[in-house]
C-alpha cells in the first residue's frame, strides 16, 4: 500500500522509509518486501532500534518528518484499526461492514498523508508535536536492554535464557506489542497470531490495540 502512495506522490518531494521490526533478520522480511516491489527504501531493524528511539510500541506506526528532518507528527497508528478484534476467529473473517470501515480508515490515513505532502496540512506545530510524543519511562528504558540481551541470547541458541529476558522486557513495557510479539514467535513465525495473542488483545478491554490518530476520518476511541 505504501508503494501506491509513493506512486501517487512521485512528483512531490516525498518518500516512504519502511522499517521492518524483524528480529529474525532480513530473510524473514524478504518475501514481503519483494512482493511489494518498492521504489522506497525498506530497511531491516533486527534490534528494534527505531522503535526504541521513537518510542514506538506496535506496527504499523508512522512518524511524519518534514524536509528539515523535523518531526511534525510523532508515532501514531498508520491506517490500521481495531476492527480485526471483532473477527470470527473460527473462520478468520470480518463482517462486511467492518471490512468496509477498515478500508475507509486506511484510505483516510493515506488521504491525510497526501494532504500533508501537497499542502502541509495536518503537520503539528512544535508545541503540539511535542505534546503528542510518547512518554519514555525508566521501565521502558530497562525493557530495551532486556530485549536486546534476549535477542543476542536467542541468536546464541540460549533460548530459555532469552525467553526470560523477553518476559522481563514485556513485564517492564506491557504496552509494547513489538517486544511481546517478537518474543512470542520463538517457536514459529505466525505463532504470535495464536491464542496467547488473542488473550492479550482481549485483556485490553476498552483500550485500543491501534489507537486512532487525531486525523480526519478517525473517530476517537477503540472499536470492538
Amino acid at each position: 500500500m505504501w508503494q501506491q502512495l509513493c506512486a501517487e506522490l512521485k512528483d512531490s518531494n516525498f518518500t516512504v522509509l519502511a522499517i521492518a521490526e524483524e528480529s529474525r533478520g532480513a530473510e524473514t522480511a524478504r518475501p514481503w518486501i519483494e512482493a511489494a516491489k518498492p521504489d522506497y527504501p525498506c530497511l531491516i531493524d533486527v534490534d528494534h532500534v527505531v522503535a526504541a528511539r521513537y518510542g514506538m510500541v506496535n506496527v504499523p506506526q508512522a512518524v511524519w518528518i518534514d524536509e528539515d528532518g523535523r518531526i511534525v507528527r510523532g508515532p501514531e497508528t498508520a491506517g490500521s484499526t481495531d476492527h480485526f478484534r471483532r473477527m470470527d476467529l473460527a473462520t478468520r473473517t470480518m463482517a462486511p461492514e467492518d471490512m468496509t470501515a477498515r478500508l475507509a480508515a486506511r484510505a483516510a490515513y493515506m488521504d491525510a498523508v497526501k494532504d500533508w505532502v501537497r499542502t502541509g496540512r495536518h503537520a503539528l506545530d512544535a508545541d503540539a508535536a511535542r505534546a503528542a510524543l510518547p512518554e519514555i519511562t525508566p521501565e521502558i528504558a530497562r525493557a530495551d536492554v532486556h530485549f536486546r540481551l534476549g535477542l543476542f541470547l536467542r541468536e546464541q541458541g540460549r533460548e530459555g535464557e532469552a525467553a526470560a529476558q523477553f518476559a522481563e522486557a514485556a513485564r517492564l513495557h506491557p504496552d509494547s506489542w513489538n517486544m511481546w510479539r517478537q518474543a512470542a514467535d520463538l517457536d514459529a513465525i505466525g505463532n504470535s497470531g495464536g491464542p496467547a495473542f488473542w488473550a492479550r488483545v482481549k485483556a485490553l478491554g476498552e483500550r485500543p490495540y491501534y489507537p486512532p490518530p487525531d486525523l480526519p476520518g478517525f473517530p476517537a476511541g477503540a472499536i470492538g
Binding site: T15, L17, E22, V59, Q61, W64
Partner: peptide, 11 residues
C-alpha cells in the same frame, strides 16, 4: 524530502 517513516513486520 518529506518522509513517512513507517514500521511494519511479518509477524
Amino acid at each position: 524530502k518529506k518522509t513517512l517513516l513507517v514500521t511494519w513486520a511479518s509477524w
